[in-house]
Amino acid sequence: MPAFNLRITRALAQRAEQGLTRTLLPHQGIAQGALHHHGQSFVHFSGNDYLGLANSAELVQAWQQGLGRWGAGSSASPLVTGFSDVHQRLIRELCDWLGYEDGVLFNSGFSANQATLFTLLEATDTLLQDKLNHASLMEAGMLGKAKMKRFKHNDTQHLTQLLTDDIANPFVVTEGVFSMDGDKAPLMDIATACQNRAWWMVDDAHGVGVHGPDGAGSCALAGVKPDILVVTFGKAFGLSGAVVLTRREVADYLTQFARHHVYSTAMPPAQAHALLHATHMIQTQQWRRDKLNELQHVYHDVFHFLPGYVATDTPIKPFIVGESERALRLARCLKERGYWLTAIRPPTVAQGKARLRITLTADHNPEQIIALAQELTRLFEEGI
Rank of each mutant, 00 (worst) to 15 (best):
D125G: 10
A13K: 05
Q374A: 15
A140K: 00
L295Y: 04
I167V: 15
K225A: 10
I282A: 03
R288V: 02
K152W: 02
H364Y: 07
H134F: 07
P268Y: 05
E382H: 11
T160N: 08
G19D: 08
A278R: 11
T116V: 15
L162C: 09
F45W: 09
L51P: 08
D189Q: 15
L143N: 04
L117F: 10
A76Y: 11
A278C: 09
G109H: 07
G141I: 11
S136K: 00
L330W: 11
A362N: 07
S41F: 00
F380Y: 15
G352M: 05
A373K: 07
L59F: 03
L187K: 08
R329M: 13
A327G: 05
R92G: 06
L229G: 05
F151Y: 15
S41K: 08
T9N: 12
E139T: 13
C219K: 05
Q129Y: 00
I167E: 02
D204K: 06
K317W: 02
L25C: 10
L306M: 02
S108A: 14
Q296H: 03
A16E: 15
D181V: 12
T284V: 07
N55R: 13
E93K: 09
H87M: 04
T81L: 06
M1Q: 13
V243E: 11
A205S: 13
L163F: 09
H153V: 08
V262K: 14
A16Q: 13
F233S: 04
P268E: 10
V104Y: 02
A258F: 01
V321L: 12
R288K: 11
S218L: 01
L128T: 12
P186F: 06
Q64M: 04
P268C: 08
A185F: 07
T279D: 02
I344R: 02
V177L: 04
L306W: 01
V202A: 01
Q65T: 10
K184Y: 00
F83C: 06
L341Y: 02
T312R: 10
A140F: 01
V210T: 08
S111H: 00
Q40C: 05
F110Q: 09
S77D: 05
E323T: 10
I30C: 05
T279C: 15
A185L: 05
Y339Q: 14
A362Y: 03
D252V: 12
A185W: 04
A278Y: 06
S108N: 09
G99I: 06
G241P: 08
K147T: 15
G241Y: 05
F4G: 00
F178N: 13
T246M: 07
V298P: 04
Y253L: 13
T174M: 01
E382S: 13
G103M: 02
F106P: 10
P268D: 11
I190V: 14
N48P: 04
L292T: 03
N55E: 08
Q18E: 15
T124N: 12
I370F: 01
